[in-house]
């Protein structure tokens, strides 16, 4: 099922379907490897609940929930 990346729980994995947003931010997300098709895992949240730490393309990336909200992921779920 499709979910926004910021709603994923810690430990959940998904495959990126679509990257929203626009301009430089979107460009940056692409440059950092957040592109459709990439597999992403939510590793943890910062002490204050935001930003989130992700594992993507073999490295650790941190994004705010606001930015993660722009990313749609396909989660293999049984919900």
């Amino acid at each position: 099922m499709l979910k926004k990346l910021d709603t994923l729980k810690v430990g959940e994995t998904g495959r990126i379907k679509m990257v929203g947003g626009e301009g430089r931010l979107r460009r940056r997300l692409f440059d950092m490897g957040v592109t459709p098709g990439a597999e992403v895992k939510v590793k943890k949240l910062a002490p204050l609940g935001d930003p989130m730490e992700l594992t993507i393309r073999g490295y650790e990336l941190t994004l705010r929930k606001a930015e993660a909200h722009l990313v749609e992921v396909e989660v293999e779920g049984n919900e």
């Binding site: 650790e60 994004l63 705010r64």
Partner: peptide, 9 residues
């Protein structure tokens, strides 16, 4: 501004 940053090992 957005916060998109690598966390190095």
């Amino acid at each position: 501004s957005p916060f998109v940053m690598e966390l190095p090992e």
